[in-house]
Amino acid sequence: MMGGLPRHPLDARRAGSTAVIVCGALLLVGAATSVARGAIARDAARARWAEIEAGRAVAGAKLSAGGARWSEARGTPVARVVVPRLGLDEVVVEGVGNDELRAGPGHMIGSALPGDSGTSVISAHRDRHFHALGRIAMGDTVVTESARGTVVWRVSRIRVVNADDPALDVRTTPTLMLTTCWPIRYLGPAPDRLIVEAVPK
């Protein structure tokens, strides 16, 4: 009657396996939800950017004269960055917080707008919008569109720095800095940052 394995350990094993599967499913759903929210936000940013492009004259009126500090609401599309060779084409939103980086590359608050004199910093996640940035090479062409107009850049410097290093500096000449985490293929928080510098052609 009581021969063989007792019944309780099997029940516990069944409950444990179910719990493990449920936890895994929850993690997957959470990750998928984040990716889906990012896709929705990206589409919204693209649609908004299309509206802004259509009313470029109105958007241009927002710019302060003399290339002063750019000021725009966080999450608002402010530019578009294209790297033709890599097939990278993203709409840049203002700010580099979690919500902004979910929607697309973020323009670092306080930096110049692409086309203005000074350093313009654009950052994005390595596993989403700037994944292709790992294949960029010296001399590659980068095109930016903003209320300042279209600027064609040439990649002049590629460097990898520690995440805590003071890697960004103020320039007087127009400089574009594209940053993302490094290594591109890395599980967990990446320890370094890839910084791609470009100057107008």
Partner: peptide
């Protein structure tokens, strides 16, 4: 939000989604 200053660090673009 990190703001751009001279000697600023690159924004934190790390994401745990893949992990």
């Amino acid at each position: 939000q990190p703001e751009f200053t001279d000697g600023a660090r690159a924004p934190n673009t790390a994401t745990p989604i893949a992990a």
